[in-house]
Design a protein around this nucleic acid. Structure first.
Lengths: 207, 207, 207, 207
DNA sequence: CATGAATGAGAGTTCATTCAT
DNA sequence: AATGAATGAACTCTCATTCAT
């Protein structure tokens, strides 16, 4: 009926009735108004279904958020892992491609990326830890690369332990200001941030 | 009765009864639960006053947020401006001190910094633009320094127009993970981020 | 799979699929949470079937209750009638055995007895009157015995018209406090209440 | 404005706004539809106030029930205690007057008595135990009298330990069928039940 | 006979805000 | 400046019931 923006490809039709529509509506609602500002009625309206039917798919509003974040983090982790594995052994290549993959995810799924960083705080208990774990696993990938490069001396930064976090912060912050169709394309942003990352690690840059 | 943490010094007793208590309670409530997750009852409880009395000080919940953000951005702008003015003419020194000032603000007023970046979205109309303007003015300071250094060649980055935003992102992101009393002190964080910033700009680093 | 307690023998497998399981689940649910406190979902869960399948057996929640109470009152009436008929002509013997039968029913089907007295009120219209009629028929048995004994003088109470109701109240109240396996067995309770009844009627007691 | 029936005197105007109106409306609603069948909207309507205002007086629906039962049991205990104290030393007189007091309460506050016995089950935790304790204290009064009379031999029943409970059951059951203005007045009911009680205890009756 | 999806109504509770005192 | 009472709207969630398969 309505052409989907590339954004929404994160949530694929699972064959289970309205599940995908609900998740997408929730993503949009949480993205626009925040988790607490968006109501289940908003989600139902966006999914073109009834309020009560939401509860046939997700037992609570926070489960809905949790499932959203689970999928987002899972996709981010998959993309980043794949990029690293394809990059060979060079820490510089690994980092460059990991950053490009991360940035690519943020650009492709801006809303999901934004919700993932700004709304995790509203999860508690196991829901929260599952999501945080996934997020931390992605961050560990960067930490590992930085640690490797620091050992071999290619990353000269005096703060190898902390720099990885800054690189991830830099990439995910894109979700807060990026506007599709603007001056900066996905490709440009990837190259920019790859260079920021290497510079920040004080790696030799090939101009 | 209870010793105030340095955090709370952002809001000074204005001599107007409970105003400071209310603002501090609101800051804490919005910081803990987010703007929409915190209720006016939460604020009243935190300020040890009655719900209805809040409205003798602030006409609405969002005015309260706006006032909070106004003060936070104002203090941040003041600190950054002062640091730059005291740094002399060298772009490197200016940037270094501006970053240290920014980081200092985030560490001193973590909650305020966090609320300032994560809850602006819930303001609208003039309330919003006043706050956004103040935030942009701070960012412009960094852009100006970077532009100056790029012109003289001391900042070799190929992306001078965009790098300033990244530097600011890096500094403000501290508010999302910093824990007082941890491994990283305010001083260390300032030095670290100053170095990150210069590295990112591809300025020559004196190791 | 699971051995049924004697309680559940009130509802016999009618050969109609899940009917017995549903009635038993409803009995337990209404017993634990009351008619309005128990949901059709509770019943479905207890019967190990789906919510919608309940409606293949019973057209509504209140029909389910009505059927339950119909069976309970029917069994109670049958037991009491049988006991009276077996007791011969002596009003004293008749009353004693009627009370024992009633108490026996309450002990054997405590939940059903409890639900029967506490949840009738949620039936309306014909459903209600059918159940109330059955209940009244049982009570009439007692009233008849008392009237007979009063005529012959063996029951000396000045309130023959009202005493029967009190006797029935006494018996059915057992369902509100009885705990199986406690100090009082079915046999003891029967004897106790038979004596209470006769004493209350001011009949000569053989100690 | 509207003349209050004697029933409602259980809840006196406490000077706190709508408190009495709310409690009376809740009593009536719970009495008519049961705790789970009555909604807070029903209560609000009956109290001529808004739904949300109920929560300025009682923090939850079950607190409202608890407070109701607390008052009912308290009044019942007070009446019974007073009657016993005024009755002198004779167990027969004590029992007779205690029963009359209990019956008087049930007749004067039929709805409260009915709700007290049929809706306690919907309380849990401390709310429940407070109410149950009060109820048990009243019952203990009867047990004490029966035990005393059994020791002196004036109550010849072989079941002194259990008979007290039956007497209380008998009295409270009145609330389930009594209709004001019917054949049986408060006075008659009191005398009837006093006689039932003594007969049940196998005390010598003065005809 | 059995199910999962769907729905409109309504549940208890909390919301920001107002007002009389 | 301060309060408790009041309110209408909105909240998340559950209800009994229906229907297509």
């Amino acid at each position: 009926m309505n052409k989907r923006s590339p954004e929404t490809t994160l949530i694929r039709d699972s064959g289970r009735g309205n599940e995908a529509a609900i998740l997408n509506a929730a993503l949009q609602a949480y993205g626009e108004k925040g988790f607490n500002g968006a109501s289940m009625r908003d989600v139902a309206r966006g999914a073109n279904t009834s309020l009560s039917n939401l509860y046939n798919y997700f037992p609570s509003k926070s489960h809905l958020l949790a499932e959203l974040l689970r999928r987002a983090n899972s996709e981010l982790l998959a993309r980043t892992t794949a990029a690293i594995e394809a990059a060979g052994d060079d820490p510089v290549a690994k980092l460059r491609d990991a950053v490009k993959a991360y940035v690519g995810f943020v650009v492709d799924h801006q809303t999901a990326a934004l919700v993932a960083i700004s709304e995790v705080r509203y999860l508690t208990g196991e829901e929260r830890s599952r999501v945080v774990d996934a997020r931390d696993r992605t961050q560990s990938l960067f930490e590992q690369i930085v640690a490797d490069g620091a050992r071999t001396g290619v990353f000269a930064t005096p703060y190898p332990k902390d720099a990885a976090r800054s690189i991830v912060s830099l990439c995910s912050a894109i979700s807060t200001w990026y506007r599709p169709g603007g001056r900066l394309s996905k490709k440009t942003l990837g190259e920019q941030h790859a260079r920021y990352a290497l510079a920040l690690l004080e790696a030799p840059l090939t101009p």
